[in-house]
Design a binder for these strands. Structure first.
Lengths: 154, 154
DNA sequence: TATTGTTATACTCTATAACTATA
DNA sequence: TATAGTTATAGAGTATAACAATA
């Protein structure tokens, strides 16, 4: 009595194949902007932050030396700039250039469309269900790691 | 009236963060076997196939030269072997060694546990819902690309 | 000639270790 | 001394182009 074809993947397979599908959707979209996944993640983080190199390395779970190289390549392409900190002259702050912001926001809009298309076989109700279930899992995982997805207000 | 906290990510964010969570779950588990994601995917494919280099490159969406290097590294670590084809002496077939099979099946079992843990905040009914929704999306995407997840029987 | 696979080369991405400059 | 960041180096992973062997 299953819906839409009597076939049902195992939970692991369903969840894994789904995740890889979404992952490569972003990968292919980013590729059209000549961006790797790592570079895309960097730009995504910088969208609403101006972190130090150290903070960036922690956020991206990379060594600081890997971070240096990554920011170098992003800078060479005019996507980010390094700014000196006013409080500590050892510290380097990284931020998007306007070109970088343009690219990341265009990419975000396109990817949103891509996901909408991917989910278009689901009904509106099913999409909402999926979204809620995913939110529950992601929120639980985030609190486990001490990260709060939502702030305290409301 | 949303369940478990009044917060709800947007559909794109929910689905994307969920996918990245599953992706890094596998990545971290693979890392404990000193396997990269690419190497892990290769072993996963070889689990139930003995493809040619050409077929592998298509399955993994890589250039044949990248495939050569990847199989080289896997071979150097004793995970796969190259076999000559009996029908066409240009062709090279790739298959798992017993060591390779041991690693990939151990990894698969562990990852299955990891996913179960990740989804443990959901009820059994919710897990089934999630699994079904993911299957619908993945199946639709697969047929779009001309790949049938399930064979014709039943 | 066409196809299968490898090799040469160059670039991205990553970590370890050694370094510089600042605190 | 400790911390922030860079540089040197080495290796994985990727694609393009040129190549060898076979069809």
């Amino acid at each position: 009595m299953a819906s839409r074809g009597d076939h049902q993947l195992s939970t692991v397979d369903a969840v894994t194949q789904f995740s890889f599908t979404v992952y490569s959707l972003l990968e292919h979209r980013a590729e059209k902007h000549d961006l790797s996944m790592v570079l895309t993640r960097l730009l995504g983080i910088l969208r609403d932050r101006r972190p130090t190199m150290n903070e960036l390395a922690q956020l991206m779970d990379l060594d600081k030396s890997s971070m240096s190289g990554l920011v170098d390549r992003a800078h060479r392409r005019g996507l980010v700039v390094r700014c000196p900190s006013e409080h500590d002259r050892r510290v380097v702050l990284v931020e998007l250039t306007s070109a970088g912001r343009l690219v990341v926001e265009q990419l975000a809009r396109q990817f949103e469309t891509d996901v909408a298309t991917l989910l278009s076989t689901l009904s509106a109700h099913e999409r909402k269900q999926l979204s809620q279930l995913a939110t529950v899992v992601v929120s639980a995982q985030a609190s486990l790691r001490g990260i709060e997805l939502f702030d305290g207000k409301s």
